[in-house]
């Protein structure tokens, strides 16, 4: 088991390198620092001098991969690749294009992101499973049929609609909760409620429908018939046997997104004014701040890979067939 985890960890390194090279290519080779400068400075004020000045200010005035003017190891270290791309391996994200320390931003913004994403994840999982189990319990009846239709309708609605409608009706018309904003501590609860509610609603359609198929697949298996032949009631069959097997794909599917919760949700945070990583990313995209986007790409990939490793571990933990073989 230990060797297995270690191997997975080592396997993650080439992937991170791949991500890093890909982002480097996208941000510096296809799209040169000159282009960036032009975009930042605006079309009107572009002079070669202004571009050079901008590049020097942001440390993009060095050669991409190899600095022939430098000596020794500086040939490799005094380059854009080393200072802007390779540095990310030690979580050295540098400064954003407007001069702030990205690492610092990330640390302060993770909390608010988690405050929204974690409850959405937990409540969403619970709601989806409950809804799916209900449909499975009433399978092949009209209740199930209409449940599925409801799911399809819910998942056909744009996530933006949930947010906008939630803000308009619940916050603006009925004045139940604040439209947007964020605060720490227990006081922050009222800010968190609406985004969580809206996000859970937006996910329940596809989630419940997916879990329903998983449970239905399990319920068609022979061991369920055995359990019934034993004399177990339908509810017990569902909870003791079907749920236990169905939870394996559900849990492992959920674990992969667990680390990504740190990144928050782009749309939700931006609409509700949550000072998390999601809104940070959106602002960066809209301000075309490449340094931040690059950092977020790397962070996101890193967290995803952590998620993959956690998935493998949780899979072998949840399924005795994998654990013991």
């Amino acid at each position: 088991m230990f060797a297995y985890i270690l191997r997975r960890l080592l396997y993650a390194i080439p992937i991170l390198i791949g991500v890093n090279l890909l982002t480097f290519a996208l941000f510096f080779v296809v799209n040169t620092p000159d282009d960036m400068a032009r975009l930042q400075l605006g079309v009107k004020h572009v002079t070669p001098e202004a571009i050079e000045r901008w590049k020097t200010e942001h440390g993009y005035d060095k050669p991409l991969l190899l600095n022939v003017e430098a000596t020794g190891s500086a040939q490799f270290t005094d380059t854009i690749f080393f200072q802007h791309s390779a540095a990310m391996f030690v979580f050295e994200f540098g400064k954003s294009d407007d001069g702030r320390d990205i690492g610092n931003e990330i640390r302060t913004r993770m909390g608010p992101s988690l405050a929204i994403a974690l409850p959405v994840f937990a409540i969403g999982l619970l709601a989806n499973i409950t809804f799916a189990l209900l449909m499975v319990f009433f399978r092949a009846t009209y209740l199930d049929l209409w449940g599925v239709v409801l799911c399809v309708v819910l998942m056909s609605i744009s996530s933006l609609f949930y947010i906008i409608a939630g803000q308009y009706f619940i916050a603006k018309l009925w004045n139940l909760l604040p439209i947007s904003g964020f605060a720490g501590g227990i006081d922050g609860l009222r800010f968190v409620l609406l985004p969580v509610l809206v996000s859970v609603m937006a996910g329940i359609g596809s989630g419940a429908r997916w879990y329903r198929t998983i449970f239905l697949e399990e319920i068609g298996k022979d061991y369920v018939r055995t359990a019934r032949a034993k004399g177990l009631s339908e509810i017990r069959v569902l909870f003791r046997h079907v749920l236990k097997n169905g939870m394996i794909p559900i849990l492992t599917g959920a674990v992969v997104v667990l680390p990504l919760l740190f990144m928050g949700s782009l749309i939700t945070e931006s609409f509700f004014g949550i000072p998390g990583l999601g809104s940070y990313t959106i602002d960066a995209i809209q301000a075309q701040d490449f340094a931040v986007v690059r950092a977020m790409v790397f962070l996101g990939s890193f967290l995803y890979i952590v998620g993959l490793i956690l998935t493998d571990i949780s899979y072998s933990w949840a399924d005795p067939r994998v654990r013991l073989q």
């Binding site: 022979d222 061991y223 018939r225 032949a229 004399g231 046997h241 236990k244 097997n245 005795p320």
Partner: peptide
């Protein structure tokens, strides 16, 4: 009927790998 199943008459099936719950 649930009392009869398993209590009055019990049943064993063809493929024991599939008929037993794999994770219990």
């Amino acid at each position: 009927m649930r009392r009869v199943r398993g209590g009055g008459m019990a049943m064993i099936f063809q493929e024991p790998m599939l008929a037993l719950n794999p994770v219990v």
